[in-house]
Nucleic acid binder design. Structure first.
Lengths: 168, 168
DNA sequence: ACCTGAACACCGTTCAAGT
DNA sequence: ACCTGAACACCGTTCAAGT
């Protein structure tokens, strides 16, 4: 035996997070993850069910981080919106897993998603429909920006300013 | 020789489009594409440079279709918005390649992207910033809807109505 | 000029075998 | 209880060899 103690489930998920931040979603393979833990890929399956379990854990982490960031931001809608953008740009890989990958609802802690929805409704101060439209606007801006979809000469600060006016 | 005529580049790209519509982006592999053309995967490389060339072609097709759909829709912003939603929902795989996959700018016909940008600005009737915010809102709504991100009991018709009011 | 099998460097996952 | 090598069914792509 090379190791006296194998990695715990927590250790695996933490290492998956670090690997994601370093190499992105495409670089997060079971083999690469196993390498970092100094075990072989098949051994991972003694600790986690499958790769989806790892992805679901990262999504839960992303949702929690996101909620914390928005709550800590200033009270105005503008502060909240700019915090959303800042967080997404600073954590593009986590953003991709959390918001650009189908949500593994059955595998994340129940209540997590609902909590965030509730928070957004409180911030926007109106009903579900308005809250969803606001969220879609923020998400759309971030998504198109991360994907490099806006032309290079686009003034995105100005675009966000205008978007925030829209939802004011 | 099994075939007297191998597939043309056009035939390959058309078959790629059909395969995409049937099996989605994940099902669009070079091997599966070759199977449909009754050749082996390595033979594809005598006709196309690589898989990116095929993806770029699909993106160009998606952009063109999208532009046509929006132009054909009624003149009001509401009609245009609902046409956007309808097209995306009816062509989720093409939407994914075209708008959820990094745009291969260097490999699509020049002017295509700019043409669409120009069109959106004309429709929204204001400046670049406003047009981008409107586009982000539409894209965000579609993206979250396709990804199944809204709760199951969400009334999306109502959400779109509210979003359209926002940009009125 | 076009097509092929074999190969390379990858995936996620299973399983019998070892300790 | 945990780890392993070998294997299976996949990827995109290259290349020498055939016609």
């Amino acid at each position: 035996m090379a190791n006296t103690n194998g990695p715990t489930r927590e250790r695996i998920k933490e290492e998956a997070y670090l690997l994601l931040q370093e190499k992105g979603l495409a670089g997060l393979s079971m083999r690469a993850l196993a390498d970092r833990l100094h075990i072989k890929a098949p051994s991972l399956y003694k600790h986690v069910g499958d790769k989806e379990e790892i992805i679901a854990d990262l999504q839960a982490r992303g949702i929690s981080e996101f909620a914390a960031i928005i709550q800590q931001a200033g009270k105005s809608k503008k502060s909240k919106a700019l915090a959303y953008r800042k967080w997404a740009k600073e954590n593009p890989h986590l953003y991709e897993v959390t918001l650009r990958t189908p949500l593994l609802r059955s595998r994340i802690p129940s209540g997590l998603e609902e909590g965030v929805t509730h928070m957004i409704i409180e911030i926007t101060g109106k009903d579900h429909e308005h809250a969803r439209a606001v969220w879609a606007l923020m998400h759309g801006l971030v998504d198109l920006e991360i994907a490099g979809r806006f032309p290079e000469n686009a003034d995105l600060d100005k675009t966000w300013k205008r978007a925030i006016e829209l939802i004011g």
